[in-house]
Amino acid sequence: MRVMTSRARAAIFAPIGDEGRAARVENRLAEAIRSGVLAHGERLPSEPELAQMLGVATVTAREALVALRAKGLVVTTRGRGGGSFVRAPESGDLVEDRLAAMSRVELRDRATVYLVVLTGCAEIAAERTDPDEVEDLRDLLIPLNVSDVARWRSADSELYLSVAALTQSARMTREVVRQEADFGALLRIPLNEPGFREATATRHQELVEALAAGDAVRARESVREHVAHSLERLAEIHEAVRR
């Protein structure tokens, strides 16, 4: 443990330096574009203006803009009325971009937190759920013949959020809200595959039945299988986008 601690401390107190500044500028602007703070079509300040505002060299601002252009978050036009303009990402692109930017280690790291939190919720919820609450959950399940992927994704998200809420803990629920925003969108990428949807529907059903029966072990197991299967598919997709 001592080694880890001193290594971590060394990383914290290492000089920051100038390297990575362009990446920081890029990240800040990318976040602003993805969150909609900078709106689609909005004109960005010129390179020198941007550099001055952010307190970096012009070449650094330029480097950041090149990277944003490569990610499709900024479009640059030449000539009169030209400049750099914000291009809002499609929601699908955004998720895939995030996945592409992630290492395998990070993917597993986030998945582990998600798994532990969600299986824990299922276990506690099974002990506390009563019949009419189970009925509300049943209404969230969608028929297999629905092919609208967005609907599957939101139903899946809402089911797990509802299970979190059944723990009766507001802090736990807020943690799951954060997990869903952070990692849930990635885990739901495979829902565009019909076979995966079928398996998901089965596990949703199992989870609701386990909660109805007050069976904490089965509830936990069902979530565990769901996350494991999602991750298995996601690892394949990750491999494809990273290659």
Partner: peptide, 8 residues
Amino acid sequence: APGTGEAI
């Protein structure tokens, strides 16, 4: 909704 960004 968190994650999907769609209206709940």
